[in-house]
Design a protein around this nucleic acid. Structure first.
Length: 627
RNA sequence: GCCCUCGUAGCUCAGUGGAUAGAGCAGCGGUUUCCUAAACCGCUUGCCGCAGGUUCGAUUCCUGCCGGGGGCACCA
């Protein structure tokens, strides 16, 4: 059954066309601000007033007549109010059972309604922790956004492949290799390998300033890694693999997983860039200046700077440095040609771990997965923080100049703001904060970061006392952290603060779990009953809860279209809130004598439980049956 | 300098071209003879940064200004 809001919208659209309105005017149906006017309202008449050159009230009256004539299910009255709103009053008696019935259907397909038919595959790339250190809360935000978007798209019936790009050939990796070799540090008891490497990284960066020899050592290591020289290349892969394993374990604590790990070193070793490079050269989109500051480089010129090229001032993005090595962006272009199946080259694939993701490999092995399993996307979503907007545009520009306009169009940079430190958090890491700034940037290199595992551990500790088991505490902590990182809009900088992140009351993941567990508690006390066809008269909290449940598919559709998890997080809180209100302000179900009332109330609680559970799962939060 | 982004209650943040802008936290005061008080209820708080413009209607769209953050590497 299409939901009431969309049937109302469609009836309005038809009526508008009949009145001679232009096509495609959004009826703007929404929940009425004021219940006195009805349950759903549309300002369509006001929007059409100019086109139709008639007063809004008159148009509204005719629209209302048409909607009335359409005899929509669950509509008890159609009214006109104010300057020209058309309102619909919902007939709770039939609407509520319909909403509950859908939520409790064994094959709940609410989220597939009106889903766009998309035959191809969407690749979502997220996480991308440089494999030289422990993940911090900034990486966690990235992974939570990416993972949630993946869950939402999949719930809408889309094919999604999740990739985690391992940038294992950059300077930061060389830093750690040099540090491990030269500093003679050893792991402390109980210290995980990734945290150990974070320590090594901070220390080696400090030492560069006083010991130039180390800088030279880094240069040699980096060159060996880039040229895939043995044994350095293999040693590096061993170290980065251990770090990746630790990073994946961190992410797994929050329910985050991947289909494929793609390694930059494999892209290098398999000559992906050479292939992309020759394509770019054949397309004659690169410049190779012989003089000036970029002499000897291969450059993708800026789109709007072509005119300046005549003056000799080449400006653009360097893809090949004068020493012949490719930049990060160059490798990213090659990677994206591969993602879209445009490169004509492929990785080898094998299992990273028995039940883990697949991983790319440059070398064939006996247990290779079938070739062609991965890639070949028709849409790519890159979850990368906002600071990378410019390089992301370069990748898109390269695709487009190679003639792949469709793919360039289908490459989305899902940009979000960073996580910074509140003054209190910065102080706890030893920063002098007397300057009075409102936030401090995190820096793994300087050790100014809140490690993901540390935060999760801290929340577990906070929540442990009241939780019934360690497993419940772990789930609560995961819920708290994920919700904290998802409830901000993508454009908002999260100023990380321990007090805020560790809170367990109010607008938090713990609250969501609490509401869900409460619902489960109710249901456990009352045996299932067949739902009556007609609901008894509803109290305000019951009506609000029915409406909140009914909104769920629209919220998910919106989140899927906009590729943003925020609205779903907000919704989950509102639904949980509506449920708690219902819980506190309606009679206890086990005490209700009247069978129909009892059955209805139980059904409503169950529908709320089921819907909240689905919302939580989409947010990557495991719904708990008890706390 | 150019580009992007943010500016909403004491604090942290939602929100939308439409009717009276919302939550949480903090503060004060309440609710428990067991469906989980990690909950619920009440009170208090707003030139939606400023100035113009578009519109029947702007906190929302456009322009300018002010303020915060970021980006404009032969780093990744």
């Amino acid at each position: 059954m299409p939901d009431l809001a969309s049937s109302f919208a469609r009836a309005l659209e038809r009526a508008a066309l009949a009145l001679g309105a232009p096509d495609g005017v959004d009826p703007g149906v929404e929940l009425s601000g004021e219940p006195v006017h009805g349950d759903l309202s549309s300002p369509l008449a006001q929007r059409l007033a100019r086109h139709l050159r008639r007063p809004p009230a008159a148009i509204a009256a005719e629209l209302a007549d048409a909607v009335r004539a359409a005899a929509l299910p669950h509509v008890s009255a159609v009214t006109v109010s104010g300057p020209g709103y058309v309102n619909v009053r919902i007939d709770d008696a039939t609407f509520a059972p319909a909403v509950i019935g859908e939520a409790l259907a064994p094959d709940d397909d609410r989220l597939l309604a009106d889903a766009p038919a998309r035959r191809g595959k969407t690749i979502v790339e997220h996480t991308q922790v440089n494999p030289n250190k422990a993940a911090h809360v900034g990486h966690l935000r990235n992974a939570c956004i990416g993972d949630t978007v993946v869950r939402i798209l999949r719930a809408r019936g889309l094919r999604v492949e999740v990739q985690n790009y391992i940038d294992d050939t950059g300077v930061q990796v060389a830093d750690v290799m040099v540090g491990l070799r030269m500093l003679g540090l050893t792991e402390e008891p109980g210290e995980s390998f990734d945290r150990f490497c974070s320590r090594v990284y901070v220390e080696i960066c400090r030492r560069y300033e006083e010991e130039p020899d180390l800088v030279e050592e880094r240069r040699r290591t980096l060159r060996a890694v880039e040229a895939r020289e043995q044994p350095v290349a293999a040693e590096t892969r061993t170290v980065t693999s251990r770090i990746v394993a630790a990073n994946l374990a961190t992410m797994a604590r929050l329910g985050i997983s991947y289909d494929l790990l793609t390694w930059e070193s494999d892209i290098l070793e398999l000559g992906f860039w050479q292939k992309a490079f020759s394509a770019l050269r054949s397309a004659e989109v690169l410049e190779h200046p012989q003089a000036g500051p970029l002499a000897g480089c291969w450059v993708l010129p800026d789109a709007d700077a072509v005119a300046d090229a005549d003056t000799g001032d080449a400006s653009g993005k360097v893809l090949v440095k004068s020493d012949g090595t490719a930049t990060y962006t160059a490798k990213d272009i090659a990677y994206h040609l591969w993602k879209f199946g445009l490169l004509g080259e492929d990785f080898h694939y094998r299992r990273w771990a028995p039940n883990g993701p697949a991983t790319s490999s440059a070398q064939p092995s006996p247990d290779d997965l079938p070739p062609g399993t991965f890639g070949h996307a028709d849409r790519v979503v890159n979850v990368i923080d906002q600071r990378q907007s410019a390089p992301q545009l370069v990748v898109r520009e390269a695709l487009s100049r190679l003639g792949y306009l469709e793919q360039a169009q289908a490459l989305h940079h899902l940009a979000y703001e960073v996580v910074a430190l509140s003054p209190a958090a910065a102080r706890s890491l030893g920063v002098a904060t007397e300057a009075g700034r409102s936030m401090y940037a995190m820096s793994g290199r300087q050790g100014l970061d809140v490690h993901a595992d540390l935060l999760i551990d801290e929340v577990v500790r906070r929540v442990r006392a009241k939780a019934s088991s360690q497993a419940v505490a772990a789930a609560l902590a995961a819920a708290a952290v994920r919700y904290y990182l998802l409830r901000f809009s993508l454009g908002a900088i999260i100023t990380f603060d321990f007090d805020e992140a560790l809170r367990t009351t109010g607008d938090t993941g713990v609250y969501l779990e609490y509401a869900h567990a409460r619902a489960c508690g109710i249901l456990a006390r009352v045996d299932p009953l067949p739902l009556p066809d007609r609901a008894p008269e509803l109290s305000p909290p019951e009506r609000a809860l029915v409406k909140a449940i009914d909104r769920f598919p629209r919220v998910v559709a919106e989140a899927a279209t906009a590729l943003t998890p925020g609205p779903l997080a907000t919704y989950a809180f509102q639904l949980a809130s509506a449920f708690n209100d219902f819980y506190e302000h309606t009679p206890r179900i086990y005490r209700i004598e009247d069978p129909a009332r009892r059955a209805f109330r139980r059904g409503l609680a169950d529908a709320a439980r089921a819907t909240l559970a689905r919302a939580l799962e989409l947010l990557g939060i495991t719904p708990l049956e008890r706390i």
